[in-house]
Design a protein around this nucleic acid. Structure first.
Lengths: 144, 144
DNA sequence: AAAATTAAGGACCGGTTTATCCTTATTTTA
DNA sequence: TAAAATAAGGATAAACCGGTCCTTAATTTT
């Protein structure tokens, strides 16, 4: 569904966002520990998120990653997905036809469409705040 | 979503099934042409489908691939998917947690669940007949 | 100013996926 | 019986993905 990099990206962003809500910056090391991901690989992913304006990074001692307050509701999961994997997950034909549409559908089109649309809707309508609340209240988890 | 091999597998099976309904066997060459896929690679995929009992192959002149009549309603899309990709597409946690459940959910769990379940339902409840009918009537397509 | 801390990023590696090519096995046709 | 047709399958290669390691850049602390 999502690539490994994208899974790490979403988990990392949710963790960074939740710590930002508490007023904390977090280091790569902390992130990798808390979301149980390979450190160096996660670093690459965080760089992409930073360049995409989803998270903010600061170098040096006491540096680290954080999410700006206004991003908490602005950033949708879809933006993370697009930054890492592109939008093919919730746009592409399930059978790989390059031009699959209502007028020229693959055999699976009508059945698959609600699934794809459902995915698109949840990633486009879920923001960071929506995901951090459960984490902060202890109802949801980022590892294991 | 599905791997390339799996996309070819579904398209190939639907084509073979639709020709079988008309009483025809089809060769690898025909299949690759009709679904617009690389011949040698498709051959490997067909071998897996054959070993999984989804399609039947016969060697020699006038040989080729076909689908047995009883398989037309017996075989569900899920069996093709499982034979090629395994069942992770519609079973795995969207954020990659190894143990994601109602009791220990990832932050995306509750939102993602209906999508995953929806996918599972369509692949488990769609059989070959369901997919060939549109193709035979000219409403659906297997390439471009 | 020097040392410590931290992110950025280049180079590299191994496995998997997607493919291609060639040989072998099997069956039918001539 | 020989030739043709056809699938099976081994060997190989290119691209991509997931991952590691090491150096560089930037910032803060001592």
């Amino acid at each position: 569904m999502f690539s490994k990099a994208c899974e790490y990206a979403i988990r990392a962003t949710v963790f960074i966002a939740s710590e930002s809500e508490k007023g904390n910056r977090v280091s790569l090391k902390q992130i990798a520990r808390e979301i149980d991901s390979p450190e160096a690989f996660t670093a690459k992913t965080l760089q992409k998120l930073s360049r995409s304006g989803i998270i903010t990074s600061t170098k040096g001692a006491h540096g680290g990653f954080h999410v700006l307050p206004e991003k908490m509701t602005e950033i949708k999961v879809s933006q993370i997905v697009v930054a890492i994997d592109g939008d093919t997950v919730y746009k592409r034909c399930s059978l790989g036809l390059s031009d699959c549409s209502e007028e020229h559908p693959c055999p699976f089109h009508s059945r698959f469409k609600p699934v794809r649309t459902g995915l698109q809707e949840i990633v486009e309508n879920t923001n960071l705040k929506d995901l951090t609340s459960g984490l902060i209240s202890g109802e949801t988890f980022l590892k294991v």
